[in-house]
Simulated scan of single mutants.
Amino acid sequence: MIADKDISLTFMKGMEVLEAFEHAATPLTIPELSRATGINRSVTRRLVLTLVQLGYLLEANRAYTPSPRVLRLASGYLKERQFGRTVQPVMAAYSKRLGDAISLAVRDGTDAIYVAYSPGDPALITSGFSIGSRLPLTATAIGRVLLAFSEPGEIERILAEPTAAYTPATKTDPDAVLADLATTRARGFAHVTGEYEPGVASIAVPVMGSNNIAKAALGIVGPAARFEEMEVCAAKAALLSECAETLGSFV
């Protein structure tokens, strides 16, 4: 645990301002950012102007948007893991074999965040998610497989919080989610239908690290009708697992 005296609260607040843009569909004003972050308006103003000065935010008509410079914050992570040179070509090869778009995600708190994506047949893409998109751990296959193969204490901690219902089919009862996580561990892949988007199914497998803990997950998404038969799901999961094993030393 890092001691409070060793933490820069100002820097932390600056990062909160940047993160406030994650779900923003339009530019945000300083009052809107202040409300979103809970930071005093005058402090928010100074943080925003600093981010503008550094080139991480752009201003137009007293509203602000992230600039392309924010991508620098992720470049070191992607370069270290050879995403462009190794991960992306491997995913592209398996995407072609599967006939499905493949997404690679890692866990970030209570979300799964996409860090790589390889398109299959564009006609089969339903979600429109891209690199940087976040999905809940409890209602998606790619999130659920990350949760299933995480530390037991983390599973208990996350399921202790109320689970959001995204569709009428979303499992919100912790015992129901726990049962599904046990099934996921037993068969080696997650299969979720209609819990995040109506009529949409997803399949995901873990990219395993040490101690049988998932360090990432690979997933595919499509119309529920394509993934009704478990034999089809198992076959696709087997190819995804082959891809995951190939990527294991890179991600």
Rank of each mutant, 00 (worst) to 15 (best):
V177I: 15
A148S: 01
G199T: 02
L147M: 11
T37W: 14
K215L: 10
N61C: 03
P89A: 03
Y166T: 09
I142F: 02
L135S: 01
A244S: 12
F149P: 07
L159W: 10
G153R: 03
S150Y: 10
P119W: 06
R185Q: 12
M91I: 08
E228G: 03
G209P: 13
R81C: 00
G153T: 02
T140H: 07
R62P: 05
E22R: 07
A217W: 15
S67K: 02
I102A: 06
T172A: 06
N40P: 08
M15W: 03
R46P: 00
L18F: 10
I203W: 01
A235E: 15
V43M: 13
D4M: 08
L47M: 11
E80H: 01
M230I: 09
A179K: 08
D121E: 04
L28E: 14
K5R: 07
L33N: 01
G194P: 09
T110G: 01
G222K: 07
Q53E: 15
L124T: 08
L73Y: 13
V251S: 01
M12G: 11
E229N: 05
I7C: 11
K79M: 13
S150K: 00
A224F: 14
K13D: 14
A234K: 02
L146V: 12
L78T: 02
L181P: 13
I213A: 05
F149M: 03
A112C: 08
A234I: 01
R41H: 06
S127Y: 08
A148F: 06
E19S: 07
G128F: 08
G38W: 12
A238I: 11
L104A: 03
G109T: 11
L47D: 05
V207S: 10
R144S: 13
Q82N: 04
I155W: 10
P27N: 04
I213K: 01
E80A: 07
I39A: 04
T65A: 10
R85V: 13
R144Y: 14
A186T: 12
H23V: 08
G194S: 15
G209Y: 09
S210Q: 13
P119A: 02
E156P: 04
V251E: 08
P136K: 00
V87Y: 06
L73P: 09
M1G: 15
R134T: 09
T44W: 09
A182N: 11
E154T: 08
L54G: 04
T44C: 11
V52P: 12
A244G: 09
A101W: 10
T184R: 00
Q53T: 07
H191C: 02
L18W: 10
T26W: 15
L73R: 02
T29M: 04
T44A: 11
L178G: 06
E231V: 01
P174M: 05
I39L: 12
S67R: 00
A204S: 12
A244H: 07
S34I: 14
T167S: 08
S150W: 04
E228Q: 14
G219A: 15
F129H: 03
I155M: 06
I2S: 02
V221F: 02
A204N: 04
I102M: 00
V106W: 11
L33Y: 03
Q82L: 05
G188Q: 09
V17F: 05
F189Y: 15
R144V: 07
V87H: 02
L57H: 11
T37L: 13
P119M: 00
R107N: 06
R81F: 03
T167Y: 14
T246K: 14
V192C: 09
A25Q: 15
A165I: 11
A92F: 03
S127F: 07
R62G: 00
V90D: 02
K13T: 01
L51H: 10
